[in-house]
């Protein structure tokens, strides 16, 4: 499983993109998926520096491919609306953060991104996701749409 309830945080108290990524990296380490918090955080921030992962519809998908990650992971968080330098110029309130070990063969994270993108284009999915009020409820929505299995 790429995601479980330990990797879902509702109302993450972050005030900026940097803070959100730091907090989620810590959470990933606590869940045993990341060996080096700073290493993972820096890989994700480096990517963000090259281009924004704000995808529109209020959703950001930061991601990092680094050996600081020990096992592929997908995290979900909701935050108070914040700027993510999205292409569409709008703030975000939902974050999906992906981590994949650098040595991971093939295109695992491309597949995760493709699947997630396909779902996110559907309004019904976005509505159901934002309506979920507990980690268990979020996980149920993701499973209903076959994400993160």
């Amino acid at each position: 499983m790429l995601i479980n309830e330990d990797l879902i945080v509702l109302n993450l108290p972050a005030k900026s993109k940097e803070e959100a990524i730091q907090m989620l990296a810590e959470k990933a380490a606590a869940a045993g998926r990341v060996a080096d918090i700073a290493g993972y955080r820096d890989a994700v921030l480096h990517r963000e520096g090259e281009y924004s992962t704000g995808m529109g519809f209020g959703v950001a998908i930061p991601h990092g491919k680094t050996n600081a990650v020990t096992e592929p992971l997908l995290m979900y968080a909701t935050v108070e609306s914040m700027d993510w330098q999205s292409l569409d110029g709008n703030p975000i309130d939902v974050i999906f953060m992906i981590g994949v070990p650098a040595d991971n063969a093939g295109d695992v994270h491309l597949k995760i991104l493709a699947n997630l993108s396909r779902r996110l284009m559907k309004e019904e999915f976005r509505t159901n996701l934002r309506a979920a009020q507990s980690p268990a409820a979020v996980l149920k929505v993701l499973q209903d749409y076959e994400i993160g299995l």
Partner: peptide, 12 residues
């Protein structure tokens, strides 16, 4: 013209 559209292809 949509980034999600492009990414949904998963084109390696």
């Amino acid at each position: 013209k949509s980034i999600l559209g492009i990414m949904s292809l998963g084109a390696s």
